[in-house]
Design a protein around this nucleic acid. Structure first.
Length: 421
RNA sequence: GGAGGGUUCGCCUAAUGGUAUGGCAGCAGUCUUGAAAACUGCCGUCCCGCAAGGGACGUGGGGGUUCAAGUCCCUCACCCUCCGCCA
């Protein structure tokens, strides 16, 4: 949610930002009209209330002296009615205003390249090298089937397509990666949370999944809960409606959760093996920071995620996403893509974003500067990392000609074995 | 799922339907070589304003009765106790 004051005072640049995301800025005018109306109603209502409060105090004083107050009370009856009418109109106006505001996307940071889609994202860094081309290089789905470490067929039987079962050393390797990622985040100062896997509507609205991304989440209708599509939702909501002391900033959280995604509308595209599944594991980083240096934090978080890929020895590249490829809530975003040698293509394993105050305003998370007025924090998050595609790349890159898989050395203490097969 | 009790500032606590009290903690200051103590001020949120200041809201959420609601009524959420069920 954007700041009304900003919309009011910098209307043109806000519109420009929305246009650069490929959306229609017309609703901004609608907001300005509603806001104007709202402010008039507030002013009118508050002045009547002020009068009412004064007179009510007079009534109390008269009654205390056992004197007659019926004339005042008669007057106030009409005023009370008028206030009720205005407040009803005000509530309606504010509701409409909020409804429109919730559909306005965040505006991009000036450093974000203008563009319409994936083709205009910029590759800004690459690390590692390709494995030697080998005609026998198998994609991960062949390896996992041969080694019996990930079972899609039985997952489909138990639940449905896209719900893999990790088996034996596969399960152990998955758990090793989770623990490795969490330990690294802990070393870098992130406090670990193990949050609920279902959230209520208020939480999903706070981080921007509702109202318009509802069809991407699994819904428990009976209790009105949503299965988390990412740990970002419960973790960022941890401090919802709270005011943080400035000296407690920055707040840094990491969390492992399974993530549940319906992936509606993506059937048939890149869904082979672990490329796209409905339930997967992920370790997420979240920061709540002082607005002054949130872009430094963004770079730091990118470093946090990159170091994991380096330690695992996986080839990857960093993309700076263009305006058209930014999500609804994001002001600036990097994607990390790992190289899949068995498929000969790049796979997204991390997305690191700065939301500035956009989420904080929805979530009402503020801090109090030394001796000043409360201010919205900036929120950031980043995957470090999403596991399935890391698993895919890791299996493919470390396979032997016989179809075994060598476990990277940094994981040995977590797996307890060095080779699969 | 059933019955009962509860929710007031970060914590504790007061308020015959008459406009939210006091303490602790915290922050700033006075005093002090320093600290403690003592004392003074600040100490829920928001809006308008450069400021001085002014105003509104605020007793778990929402609604109602009333000139006026922490207080009365309805409703929802959460917490506690007991019963039932249960890993």
């Amino acid at each position: 949610m954007l700041d009304l004051k900003t919309i009011r005072e910098h209307t043109e640049s806000v519109k420009e930002g929305i246009r650069s995301k490929g959306e229609d800025p017309a609703r901004i005018d609608e907001i300005l009209t509603l806001d104007e109306k709202r402010r008039q109603l507030v002013q009118h209502s508050e002045s009547l209330k002020s009068r009412k409060n004064t007179v009510s105090a007079d009534v109390a004083a008269l009654k205390a002296k056992k004197e007659d107050a019926t004339a005042l009370i008669e007057d106030m009856r009409a005023v009370a009615d008028e206030i009720k009418t205005i407040d009803t109109e005000l509530a309606r106006t504010e509701e409409m205003l909020r409804a429109v505001l919730l559909t306005i996307p965040n505006i991009p940071h000036p450093s974000v390249p203008i563009g319409r889609g994936p083709a205009e994202n910029k590759v800004i860094a690459e690390w590692g090298d390709d494995t030697p081309t080998d005609s026998a290089l198998r994609p991960h789905w062949e390896l996992m089937e041969k080694l019996k470490i990930i079972d899609f067929a039985r997952g489909t039987k138990i639940t449905g397509a896209g719900f893999p079962v990790y088996v034996g050393k596969g399960a152990r390797l998955e758990r090793a990666l989770i623990n490795f990622f969490l330990d690294e985040a802990g070393r870098r100062g992130y406090t670990e949370l193990l949050p609920p896997l279902m959230v209520n509507a208020a939480s999903a609205t706070g981080t921007g999944q509702l109202p318009d991304k509802e069809d991407q989440m699994y819904v428990v209708t009976r209790d009105e809960f949503y299965l988390v599509p990412t740990a970002e939702v419960p973790v960022t909501n941890f401090l919802r409606d709270e005011i943080i002391r400035e000296k407690d900033l920055p707040v840094k959280f990491c969390a492992y959760t399974p993530c549940f995604r319906r992936e509606a509308g993506s059937y048939g595209k890149d869904v082979r093996g672990l490329n796209r599944v409905h339930q997967f594991n992920k370790v997420e980083l979240v920061r709540l920071v002082h607005p002054r240096h949130s872009y430094d934090d963004l770079e730091e978080m990118r470093g946090d995620a990159e170091s994991l890929l380096r330690t695992l020895g996986l080839r990857y590249r960093v993309l700076l996403m263009c305006t058209g490829d930014l999500g609804f809530t994001q002001a600036k975003k990097y994607d990390l893509e790992v190289w899949s040698p068995g498929q000969q293509k790049w796979l997204e394993v991390s997305s690191i974003s700065n939301f500035e105050s956009f989420q904080a305003r929805r979530l009402n998370i503020r801090f109090r500067p030394e001796g000043g007025k409360t201010e919205m924090v900036h929120t950031l998050n980043g995957s470090a990392l999403a596991l399935p595609r890391v698993m895919a790349a890791l299996l493919e890159r470390n396979q032997t000609p016989e179809g075994k898989v060598v476990v990277p050395a940094p994981l040995h203490r977590y797996t307890g074995f060095e080779i699969i097969g």
